[in-house]
């Protein structure tokens, strides 16, 4: 077990290095000069060169990368934005909780939707409910999230006025000038983004839960449980679900990364100041340190979450834990 953990951590390190290198290389392949953008439209060539020197862009790529890595490892610093000269760490620490709450909230909604729907579909295959659920799955997989987001925002937010159309409210550090704040306002504003991200993701999960439950239902040990005289509720909870959920846990681990990507669109639609917005802006303005920061943070988050899910998997499946 410990050996497994060490191996996993070493792999995480390698992966992390690869991600930073790829981001760096791609950035420098783009034919644009960040210094020119940072210096402003009317800057003279001398001024641009000064800015280049100031930002370290006059040095070869590998030196820049080395400096970046050194700063990251020794100081844990992602550097400063080319544009605002503010610490990237701070920017990410501000934006990440918003994205995280979007992703985790959506994931909870996905499970609340997909597990009951998947089980019911599996218990009554080819029933009206099953067919309806499968139609929904198709729609969920096919439609783009931003379209669903805009439609929901229009119908539920604008027409029915049940939720805000867009916007974000702080939970903890509410500023004096803010028009809204606190847990209720925050959740009220997050409702539609969560729902949008959940709708597009839950489809796959309904199908997956349905398939897993149907497969597990016909296992010999489920028959054994019935032969013991266990009531159907116990059979479902203790014998079918406990086994059917193992692959679902793995899938959640893989999908959280995908959800981080999907969150970018949702943030844009609902005007949430999360990591997606930060990354988008950084790309448009060739702000390498900020972009690099978002990518590295994302990679770290995915690596950590995958590790947690793997450990969780080992915890719930004794065959992995004890082998």
């Amino acid at each position: 077990m410990l050996q497994y953990l060490i191996r996993r951590l070493l792999w995480a390190g390698v992966l992390f290095l690869a991600v930073t290198i790829v981001t760096y290389v791609i950035f420098f392949l783009v034919p644009a000069n960040p210094a020119r953008l940072a210096a402003g439209q009317s800057a003279t060539p001398e001024r641009v060169r000064e800015v280049e020197k100031f930002l370290g862009l006059d040095q070869p790529v590998y030196v820049q990368y080395g400096n970046f890595l050194k700063r990251l490892v020794l100081e844990g610093s992602l550097g400063q934005s080319f544009l605002t000269r503010q610490s990237v760490n701070e920017e990410i620490l501000r934006a990440a909780p918003i994205t995280a709450s979007l992703v985790f909230g959506a994931m909870i909604m996905v499970l609340m939707l997909a597990i009951p729907l998947g089980i019911l579909s599996a218990l009554r295959p080819r029933s009206l409910l099953d067919r309806t659920a499968m139609t929904y799955v198709l729609i969920g997989i096919s439609l783009p999230s931003f379209w669903i987001g805009l439609m929901l925002s229009y119908l539920i937010g604008y027409k029915l006025q049940l939720t805000p159309i867009a916007g974000y409210c702080e939970v903890i550090s509410v500023q004096e000038a803010a028009i809204c704040g606190g847990l209720t306002d925050w959740a009220y504003h997050m409702l539609l983004p969560w729902f949008t991200l959940a709708i597009v993701t839950a489809g796959t999960y309904v199908r997956f839960v349905r398939a897993e439950v149907m497969e597990t239902m016909h296992q010999d040990y489920v028959r054994t449980a019935r032969a013991k005289g266990a009531p159907e509720r116990t059979v479902m909870r203790s014998h079918i679900l406990r086994n059917a959920m193992l692959p679902v846990v793995t899938m959640i681990g893989m999908d959280i990364g995908l959800l981080l990507g999907g969150a970018i669109f949702i943030e844009a639609v609902f005007g949430l100041p999360g990591l997606g917005g930060t990354a988008l802006e950084a790309i448009q303005r060739f702000d390498l340190p900020t972009l690099q920061g978002v990518v590295i943070f994302g990679a770290l988050a995915i690596i950590t979450l995958t590790l947690i899910v793997d450990l969780l998997y080992a915890w719930i499946d004794p065959r992995i834990r004890l082998s």
């Binding site: 296992q219 010999d220 040990y221 028959r223 449980a225 032969a227 266990a230 014998h239 406990r242 065959r319």
Partner: peptide, 18 residues
């Protein structure tokens, strides 16, 4: 399981692995 009980052919798959 109380008055009539049953055992099955394949013991490898008849017990719940978790």
């Amino acid at each position: 399981g109380n008055e009539i009980a049953m055992i099955f052919q394949d013991p490898m798959t008849s017990l719940n692995p978790v």
